[in-house]
Nucleic acid binder design. Structure first.
Length: 425
RNA sequence: GGAGGCGUGGCAGAGUGGUUGAAUGCGGCGGUCUUGAAAACCGUUAGGCAUCGUAAGGUGCCUCGAGGGUUCAAAUCCUUCCGCCUCCGCCA
C-alpha cells in the first residue's frame, strides 16, 4: 500500500496514477476520513495525557499514604470518555485502511501511459521457427507422444488440470532443475523451497489480499491459501524484519507449484496448457535498496531472458502500459515466448518492481547508515519475476522443436538432465 | 489430538498491579589511551503516530507475541488466538 502521509502530501500524483490506471477510485472519502481521524486522535491524546497525570498524582498520594479517592473518581470519568472516543477512532481506522488497501501502486515515470495496447516492445530475441511441414499444436503433439494425459487429469481433479506422464513428466523435472541451476550457479541467487500453503498475513503482505480473495484457492478451516506464485512465500520470508544494508540486494529463487482458480476466465484459453489451475514455476525475488531497484529490475529481466535464450526459444520483452500493470507493481516487463503452431506470443514471465508498496504492507525494512554516519530505517524495494513459468514454456518447446517425424527435439541444455536423451519420440 | 511450560529491546536475561519504555550482561556506535589493534575506561544505543517549528529540535500519545476483558491504574491478573519447547498419541 501507499503511505498515507505521502498521499496526503502528493494528492495530484496519486490521482494521476489512478487516472493512468483507469481506476474508478477517488480520494475524497480518504481525505475526509483522514482529517477526522487526526482530529479525533488529538482529542484522545489530550485525554490520555490527562489520565497519565492523574495516575501520577494517585501514585504520589498513595506513596505518602494520603487519601486519593477524589483523584481516583475523576480519573474514572476520564477513562470513560477515552473509551467512547476510542470507539470512534477505531471505526475511522477501519474505514481508512480498507480504502488504503485497495489503492494501487503508482506507475514509474517510464511506464507507457494508457490502455494495454500502449505496451512497448523493448527488444526481441531469436526468430520464429519455420517448418517445411504443417506444424502441430502442443496438444496434438503431447497426445501423440503420450506425454500429457488431459482427460485423466480432469477425471482426477477437474478441467484445466494437467497430468504429465513419462517423458513429459521428466521434461518438466528437467526444466525445473535446469532453471534453478542457472539462477543459482550463474546469476547468484540463493535457492529456497517454500511452503505452498500460506496464511492470510502473507497473502496480504504481497497484495493478493484483500482484493483478489476470489481468485485464490482457500482452506477455510485453517485460513490458509494455496499460493498463486512463489512470490508470496519468498517475499514474506522477511515480513516484519529489518535487514542489514550491507546484505542488499538479497536474491532468492525457488520452485513452486502455482494454484489459480482462474475464476471469471471460463472460455478463455481452455485447451491444453495455456491456462491451467496448477502449474510449475521458478520464481526470482529480490530485496533491494531504493536507489538501485530499477537497475536490479533490468538484471532480473536479463536473468529470465537467459533461460529462454539457453532453451533457444524466440521471445520478446514487453514493457506493460499503465492500464495493464498489476495492482502492486510500479513497473513490469513481460517476456513473451513465441509458439510456432498457435503463432502467438505467450506470456511466460512477468518481472516487476514493487518499490516500497509490498514492503510497506509486509513491513520489510533495512537499516541504512548515511554518509554523515546517521542510522535510519527505510522500507526496502521488493522485486520479483518468473524465471520462468513452465506450462507455457513447454508449449513453446513442443511446438518449436517438433520434427517432421513427429518427435520433439530436446534443447541441448536440457539433455544433461535427461540422461543425454536427444529427443522425445 | 491430549497434558504441561514459555513468548520482555539486536541477542541473552531481570521484572508478578502504581514514576518501568523497562535493571543487568553481551553485542553495536562514538571517544580516551595506542604507531596500529586488542584490553581497559568513559559516553551512547528501539520503533511508530500526532502536534508545534523554515530548520535544528520541542511537546504529547502508543508499543513488553496479537486481540479482547478486569481495574482509577496492567509487562505484571483473566480470556481468546498465534508461535515456540517438553512429554504422550497418531503418522509420510
Amino acid at each position: 500500500m501507499l503511505d498515507l502521509r505521502f498521499i496526503r502530501e502528493n494528492r495530484e500524483v496519486v490521482e494521476k496514477a489512478l487516472r493512468d490506471r483507469a481506476s474508478k477510485l477517488t480520494l475524497d472519502e480518504l481525505f475526509s476520513l483522514d482529517e477526522s481521524r487526526r482530529k479525533i486522535l488529538v482529542e484522545i491524546e489530550g485525554l490520555r495525557a490527562e489520565k497519565n497525570k492523574a495516575n501520577d498524582q494517585i501514585t504520589a498520594l498513595l506513596k505518602e499514604k494520603k487519601p486519593a479517592v477524589s483523584v481516583i473518581s475523576s480519573m474514572k470519568v476520564i477513562a470513560e470518555r477515552i473509551d467512547k472516543t476510542e470507539a470512534g477512532l477505531r471505526a475511522l481506522d477501519d474505514q481508512l485502511s480498507s480504502i488504503l488497501f485497495i489503492i494501487p501502486n503508482i506507475p514509474h515515470s517510464s511506464v507507457p501511459v494508457g490502455e494495454p495496447d500502449k505496451a512497448k516492445i523493448v527488444r526481441s530475441w531469436g526468430k520464429p521457427q519455420e517448418f517445411d511441414f504443417k506444424p502441430l499444436s502442443h496438444i496434438d503433439i503431447a497426445q501423440r507422444l503420450d506425454i500429457i494425459d488431459f482427460n485423466r487429469a480432469s477425471k482426477i481433479s477437474g478441467s484445466n488440470f494437467i497430468l504429465y506422464k513419462g517423458q513429459g513428466a521428466q521434461l518438466e523435472r528437467a526444466l525445473i532443475n535446469f532453471m534453478l541451476d542457472l539462477h543459482t550457479k550463474k546469476h547468484g541467487y540463493t535457492e529456497v523451497f517454500p511452503p505452498f500453503l500460506v496464511n492470510r498475513a502473507s497473502m496480504t503482505g504481497t497484495g493478493q489480499l484483500p482484493k483478489m480473495e476470489d481468485d485464490m484457492y482457500k482452506l477455510k478451516d485453517d485460513d490458509l491459501f494455496l499460493i498463486p506464485t512463489a512470490e508470496v512465500p519468498l517475499t514474506n520470508i522477511y515480513r516484519d524484519e529489518i535487514l542489514e544494508e550491507k546484505n542488499l540486494p538479497i536474491c532468492f529463487t525457488g520452485y513452486s507449484a502455482c494454484f489459480r482458480r482462474e475464476a471469471g476466465s471460463y472460455g478463455k484459453d481452455t485447451k491444453g496448457l495455456m491456462r491451467v489451475h496448477q502449474f510449475n514455476k521458478i520464481e526470482m525475488v529480490k530485496f533491494a535498496k531504493p536507489e538501485s531497484s530499477y537497475e536490479e529490475l533490468e538484471k532480473l529481466v536479463n536473468d529470465a531472458e537467459d533461460v529462454l535464450q539457453a532453451l533457444g526459444i524466440c521471445y520478446r520483452v514487453v514493457a506493460l502500459a499503465t492500464q495493464d500493470l498489476s495492482f502492486a507493481a510500479s513497473k513490469c516487463y513481460d517476456l513473451e515466448a513465441f509458439a510456432a503452431c498457435v503463432g502467438k506470443w505467450l506470456e511466460v514471465s512477468s518481472c516487476s518492481n514493487f518499490e516500497s508498496f509490498q514492503a510497506r504492507r509486509a513491513n520489510i525494512k533495512f537499516k541504512r547508515t548515511t554518509a554523515e554516519g546517521r542510522r535510519s530505517t527505510e522500507y526496502v524495494h521488493t522485486l520479483n519475476g518468473s524465471g520462468v513459468a513452465l506450462a507455457r514454456t513447454v508449449i513453446a518447446i513442443l511446438e518449436n522443436y517438433q520434427q517432421k517425424d513427429g518427435s520433439v527435439l530436446i534443447p541441448e541444455v536440457l539433455r544433461p538432465y535427461l540422461n543425454g536423451q536427444e529427443k522425445i519420440s
